[in-house]
């Protein structure tokens, strides 16, 4: 039981880290057509993400792999049930991934416009759909006996699901705008600052609507009323949100970005804590719900995987932080002249 609960927490943590890291490049990729006007500005935007997006995306693979290893039944049911939504996300990620590499290879405007479009779609769609998917999971999905899913792709686009999608989109857009504030200069940076300032109230409004909507659409708050200490997570999330605005006003972009990271991790855990022990709740009958306890792997597998995660995740964090630190400087016009730049 304890092992399963620990794994539930780790499962949530991996998703949170994925959203925190890949979130800013989803956001920046979506913002690119709006803040980057010239080809040089677009290149600056892409080079601000270039060294890091790939490592960020592995958090998704790890979250997926860990779901498979620790909760095979959840992995099997969640991904086959949300088949079309997940395929859309994966195709979007494929297009986005190659676009970064392909775009810079040829200078023609038609070629670059093609990959710019792919970067936009490939960033926007996952940002929205991950939110839609998680909100639907919080809400419960039509899962019948024997883990057979009765829903449709369009059924996911219900009001609460869409609200979750917009929330994720807003979180990532602000996160991405702040990243560009840190990494760029000149007119591009000014537009990124303006975008962050304009998007922040939207983020705040959607977050408030989502928190209220959650009370009516889900049972997430039950866990909070049972253990009021968990309300601290919501407080931290709100503190992050406020921090963004405070630090943005002082032009302390690093701190604003960290506040945004805190907001994203907090928002993820807000849902995960409320969900526990459910991982894929059924809206048809609670007894069909998949939980951390009825879907977990054997204790031996959980122990082996725990050892692996305890050893390797800190190592991964160390070299990823090293890589972030290596590329902490602004992308300059001079950087764009180098052969290897995107």
């Amino acid at each position: 039981m304890l092992l399963e609960t620990i794994w539930f927490g780790l499962w949530g943590l991996l998703w949170a880290v994925f959203f925190m890291t890949d979130g800013f490049d989803f956001g920046a990729g979506t913002l690119m057509p709006f803040v980057a006007k010239t080809d040089d500005e677009k290149r600056m935007t892409i080079n601000a993400l270039g060294p890091l997006w790939d490592g960020n995306e592995v958090w998704l693979l790890t979250a997926g792999g860990v779901t498979f290893a620790a909760f095979p039944l959840v992995y099997a049911t969640m991904f086959s049930s949300l088949y079309s939504a997940l395929m859309l996300i994966l195709f979007a990620l494929i297009l986005r991934g190659v676009s970064f590499e392909f775009r810079s290879q040829i200078e023609g405007p038609g070629w670059r416009r093609l990959w710019d479009t792919c970067i936009f779609i490939g960033s926007f769609l996952p940002a929205l759909l991950f939110g839609v998917a998680f909100a639907n999971i919080f809400q419960g999905l039509p899962l019948a006996a024997d883990n057979v899913y009765k829903g449709t792709l369009l059924g996911l686009l219900n009001p609460y699901g869409l609200c979750g999608g917009l929330l994720f989109l807003a979180l990532f857009l602000v996160h991405g705008a702040l990243w560009l504030c840190i990494k760029t200069e000149g007119a591009l940076q000014q537009r990124a600052i303006a975008a962050a300032n304009k998007l922040w109230p939207v983020e705040l409004a959607i977050a408030v609507i989502f928190l209220v909507f959650t009370k009516f659409a889900t049972n997430l708050y039950d866990n909070y009323f049972a253990t009021p200490a968990f309300f601290l997570v919501i407080l931290l999330t709100v503190a992050g949100l406020v921090g963004i605005k405070v630090f943005l006003a002082r032009q302390a972009f690093f701190k604003a970005w960290f506040s945004s990271a805190l907001t994203i991790v907090g928002a993820t855990f807000f849902g995960i804590i409320g969900l526990y022990p459910n991982m894929f709740p059924s809206s048809i009958n609670p007894k069909y719900s998949l939980t951390a306890h009825n879907s977990a792997s054997s204790p031996l597998t959980l122990k082996i995987m725990l050892t692996v995660v305890i050893i390797f995740v800190p190592i991964v964090l160390i070299y990823q932080i090293w890589a972030y630190n290596l590329f902490k400087d602004k992308v300059t016009a001079e950087d764009l002249t180098y052969e290897e730049s995107y």
């Binding site: 060294p51 693979l61 792999g65 860990v66 597998t301 995987m305 991964v316 070299y319 290596l326």
Partner: peptide
């Protein structure tokens, strides 16, 4: 999944992370 899933998860955690993080370092470093 109890057997097979862990192998895929270990691949991502113990190997693919390193490759993907360092590829950016090599390109831009």
């Amino acid at each position: 999944g109890d057997v097979f899933g862990s192998l895929l998860a270990i691949e991502a955690t113990a190997a693919f992370f390193l490759e993907s993080t360092l590829i950016g370092v090599w390109i831009f470093g």
